[in-house]
């Protein structure tokens, strides 16, 4: 198994982005998380704007973990898994709350991974971990760059394992990526991270 030099208990939030081909990977990762995983996780997965209900429920069922769509100004709570709602951007405010926005789509996407990652990086600085998974467009690459610039940790899914590797490959082009990992290694990383908080 890989060695992880950046493991520490300083992290306060994990953001995950994904698009085409990421649903299975996200499901596997969430399913493998220990029940008492301490960090909040905010996810932006590209989704159909017209289908407002059901996605978070489907993820919850598949992973046995509650997945919630935050309301505007909702407090970011420990150990909770959040999913960006349909047709809104999910952003992070200073003071550990979410905010939602109906601004223009970014990279043809609303929710946009770039917006979640950039605002999270602004608020959480070096206490943030960004994970970018399989996907068919460039959304998330700029956000990963911001996470790196502000001292956060960047992880992408190993492109050869991705159904469509445009997303992680674009991020690798845009900025320094700390770890390029297969999904089982991402799970291993999160489990080791979990031990830091015991």
């Amino acid at each position: 198994m890989a060695r992880f030099d950046h493991i520490s208990s300083k992290y306060k939030l994990i953001v995950i982005g994904g698009s085409a081909g990421s649903f299975q990977v996200v499901s596997r990762i969430l399913q493998a998380l220990p029940e008492d995983f301490p960090l909040p996780i905010a996810m932006c997965l590209h989704r159909l704007k017209d289908v407002r209900e059901g996605f978070a429920e489907a993820l919850s069922l598949k992973t046995n973990k509650p997945v919630v769509e935050p309301l505007d100004k909702e407090l970011i709570k420990k150990g909770t898994i959040y999913l960006a709602p349909a047709n809104y951007h999910l952003c992070v405010e200073l003071g550990q709350t979410f905010s939602l926005s109906t601004e223009e789509p970014v990279n043809n996407s609303r929710p946009s991974i770039d917006l979640l990652f950039e605002t999270a990086a602004y608020a959480y600085r070096d206490k943030l971990i960004g994970i970018l998974l399989s996907g068919a467009n460039r959304d998330g690459a700029w956000g990963m760059k911001k996470i790196h610039e502000r001292g956060g940790l960047t992880i992408v899914q190993e492109p050869s394992e991705c159904l469509i590797d445009t997303m992680p490959a674009s991020a690798m082009q845009a900025t320094r990526i700390d770890y390029v990992l297969r999904s089982d290694q991402i799970i291993d990383f999160l489990r080791k991270l979990h031990k830091q908080y015991a």
Partner: peptide
């Protein structure tokens, strides 16, 4: 105003 969106 919500600072995150105002800044953006």
């Amino acid at each position: 105003y919500a600072m995150s969106s105002f800044r953006r």
